[in-house]
Amino acid sequence: MSFLSVRDLVVHFPTVDGVVKATEGLSYELDRGKTLGIVGESGSGKSVSSSAILGLHRGTNAQVSGEIFLDGVDLLKINDESIRRKRGREVSMIFQDPLSAMHPYYTVGNQIMEAYRIHHDVSKKQARARTIEMLERVGIPQPDRRVDDYPHQFSGGMRQRAMIAMALINDPGLLIADEPTTALDVTVQAQILDLLQDLQREFNSAIIIITHDLGVVAEMADDVLVMYAGRAVEYGPTKEILVHPEMPYTWGLLSSVPDVVGDTDAKLIPIRGNPPSLLSPPPGCAFHTRCDHRDKVPGDLCRTTVPELTPARAGGNHTKRCHLANPDEVYATEVLPEIAPETLEEQG
């Protein structure tokens, strides 16, 4: 079994208007030293499914089912106290906005020390020394001085570094990074991504990086999981998915994002319409309302039947959730010429 193994995870939120189906039957595997990128738009369930690993929905009215095995233990079966002991020690999390993720009234050092002392019975002095060491490791200049600063005295990039220090101070096996660089400038984003990769090599941790930015995934992740309306719609090795995407939603993501290289005349082909409501997702394939290729599927299949996650033609462990019979052909003849004519020429 893999280090982390999520099987058929379901997260539902009952509301007065009905049940919000935030995550439906999500499964994935992740080994130590590897990175999984979860891509999707807001409301696709990517954050919700990951907070379920830490049991952050406990104590709310969320209904969580399925299995989450971390190092052989099913995190959904153990009690509240046991999961609390695992938080921060075996699984850590960093968030999108490091300013609001830190308590404004306590010093950065205080908050990192707290994270250490929850799981280690050490004196304040030892915890402080360890905190300074960790701040130095994540690249904060003059850590012995900055440890007593408040979060607002840090720049955005430094705050995210401090959050990383807090998350990794107990050397957890799994780090969940929820949009860790979305709020940061592009050069700072590059620094933080580099840092995460360096630390991953050093600590041999597994990383889940949640993002809407395929570029970040392309640089960081070994595997990609594309989510749409609470379901995985495409899952497999990053390179495989970026070169041979098989699901029209993934095509849409690729074709709607402008690039800094390549043809300046390339068109942006947006995905039409809006993301569906998780309260009443469309029947059949949730993406069919926005899909340009649904008419290529015979009958009413897309409108009536949720496609299974099946192996892609490219083979290997690349799976997709789509009824299209010949996605490779459609992609090569219809999508690629529109979005990246130059890559076709290169390939001859």
């Binding site: 609390r84 938080r87 850590s92 999390m93 993720a101 308590h103 994270a115």
Partner: peptide, 14 residues
């Protein structure tokens, strides 16, 4: 509902 309470929870604070 503040983010920093989620952080506190995520680090395993009682």
């Amino acid at each position: 509902g503040e983010d920093y309470l989620r952080t506190a929870k995520a680090k395993g604070l009682a």
